[in-house]
Every structure is written in C-alpha cells, then in structure tokens.
Simulated assay, not measured.
Amino acid sequence: MELNTRRIITETTRLAKEPIEGITVTPRGDNFRHFDVIIEGPPQTPYEGGRFRLELFLPENYPLSPMKILFSTPIYHPNINRLGKICLDILDSKWTPALRISSVLLSIQQLLSSPNPDDPLDNTVAQHWRENLEDAHKTAREWTNKHAQE
C-alpha cells in the first residue's frame, strides 16, 4: 500500500472516530480521495444556522500537494469567491504535509468566524466588509438564509 493511501485511510478513519464539532465529512461513493463536507455556520456570526456544503478532493500526490476544497453553497464572504474558491494560505503557499484534513477544515471553520477583508478573494465583498460591516453582515445573513438552509 502506498504511503499516501495509508495516510488518507488513517486520516479518514480518525475523522470517523473523532468527528469535529460542526463539521461532517462523508466519502463520495467509492473514491477514497473525494469527500462531501458540511460545515455548520459558527454561532454569533452571520453564518449561524447555515449548513454550508463543500467538496474536498485529495490529489494523487497528497500530502505533498494541498487538498482542493470548494464551497458548493453560495456564501457572502470576502475570502471565498462566487465559484467557491477559498483564499486560505494553508491551501496554497503555506501548505505543509504536516497539515491534515481535520486541521484544514478547522481553519475554514475559523475563517467563517473571522473573515479577513485585508486578504480578499472577492474584492467587492471585502470593500463592503471594510466600509459597512453591519450591512455586510446583514447581506451575509441573507445569503445564509437563502442558500444554506436545508
């Protein structure tokens, strides 16, 4: 068994045994590299009460290369664009093989609690966030209510 296959099995087994609060990870079919993820909107944020769907894929050379993660659920957030791409340094320039699926998902959950409009992926949303935080939160709540309810 290849080292990266063993690593994936170890990580997914641990996720099943020790689930992360507010995060559900489900393998997609019989492809052990492809997962459906649901992240619950953190309390006391504009995303509270929402259930956000993400797609996670582990490339062939994982963990040497970062996993690919996209939001499937539309979300109004300065660090997530309309295509679902996430601006998070550990998914790009700060990736290290020491990172695990669980730590990356926790970082995404934290990004929902603490958006960073100074390092945006969606400049329009970031500008709204910087210029009128209360109104940006209102829009984010509206999007959550419209798109992230099941």
Results as ranks from 00 to 15, higher is better:
Glu60Val: 10
Asp119Tyr: 03
Gln109Lys: 11
Tyr47Pro: 06
Leu105Cys: 08
Asn145His: 12
Lys138Ser: 13
Leu112Ile: 03
Gln110His: 15
Thr96Ser: 15
Gly50Ser: 04
Trp143His: 00
His34Ser: 14
Leu64Tyr: 13
Lys146Pro: 11
Asn79Glu: 02
Glu55Ile: 01
Asp92Gln: 15
Leu99Ser: 10
Ile38Thr: 14
Glu21Phe: 07
Glu21Cys: 09
Leu121Tyr: 09
Pro63Glu: 07
Glu55Phe: 00
Ser107Lys: 10
Ser102Arg: 08
Leu54Lys: 00
Thr24Ser: 14
Ile39Thr: 03
Asp119Val: 05
Phe57Asp: 10
Phe32Asp: 13
Ser72Pro: 00
Glu40Gly: 01
Thr144Gly: 11
Leu121Met: 12
Ala126Lys: 07
Lys85His: 15
Arg33Pro: 00
Phe35Asn: 02
Arg28His: 12
Pro115Lys: 05
Gln44Thr: 04
Asp135Thr: 10
Trp143Asn: 02
Ala136Ser: 15
Met67Ala: 13
Leu112Gly: 10
Phe71Asp: 07
Gly22Ile: 09
Arg28Met: 05
Pro120Phe: 02
His147Ala: 08
Glu18Val: 03
Arg51Gln: 12
Ala126Pro: 02
His77Asn: 08
Ser103Met: 08
Tyr76Cys: 07
Val104Arg: 06
Thr24Asp: 12
Thr139Ser: 11
Lys138Phe: 10
Glu150Arg: 13
Val104Met: 08
Phe52Ile: 00
Asn79Gly: 07
Glu21Leu: 11
Ala140Trp: 01
Gly41Asp: 01
Leu15Arg: 02
Glu142Ser: 14
Gln44Lys: 11
Leu121Pro: 04
Arg53Lys: 13
Ile39Met: 09
Phe71Asn: 08
Pro78Ser: 09
Thr139Lys: 14
Gly49Trp: 05
Ser114Asp: 15
Leu121Ala: 02
Leu121Thr: 07
Ile20Arg: 03
Arg51Phe: 14
Val125Ala: 10
Phe57Tyr: 11
Arg28Gly: 01
His147Val: 00
Ser103Tyr: 00
Leu106Lys: 14
Leu64Asp: 13
Asn61Asp: 15
His137Ala: 03
Glu131Leu: 13
Leu106Gln: 12
Thr12Trp: 06
Lys146Thr: 15
Gly84Ile: 04
Gly84Thr: 00
Leu121Asp: 11
Pro117Gly: 04
Asp118Pro: 00
Thr73Tyr: 11
Met1Asp: 08
Met1Lys: 09
Ile90Asn: 06
Arg51Gly: 02
Pro117His: 02
Arg141Asp: 01
Leu91Gly: 10
Thr124Val: 09
Leu88Arg: 01
Met67Tyr: 01
Leu91Pro: 04
Asn4Gln: 13
Leu121Glu: 03
Pro27His: 06
Ile86Pro: 02
Asp122Leu: 02
Trp129Thr: 02
Leu91Ser: 02
Gly22Ala: 04
Asn145Arg: 15
Pro66Ala: 14
His128Glu: 12
Pro59Arg: 01
Thr24Ala: 10
Thr45Tyr: 04
Ser93Asp: 11
Leu70Pro: 00
Val25Met: 06
Leu15Tyr: 04
Asp122Phe: 07
Glu11Arg: 03
Arg6Tyr: 12
Pro42Phe: 03
Ile8Val: 15
Trp143Cys: 05
Tyr76Asp: 03
Thr13Val: 07
Ala98Tyr: 04
Pro97Met: 05
Arg51Met: 12
Asn123Val: 10
Gly41Arg: 09
Arg28Phe: 11
Lys85Glu: 15
Trp95Glu: 06
Phe32Tyr: 13
Leu83Val: 05
Pro78Asp: 04
Ala126Ile: 06
Arg82Trp: 05
Glu60Gln: 14
His34Thr: 03
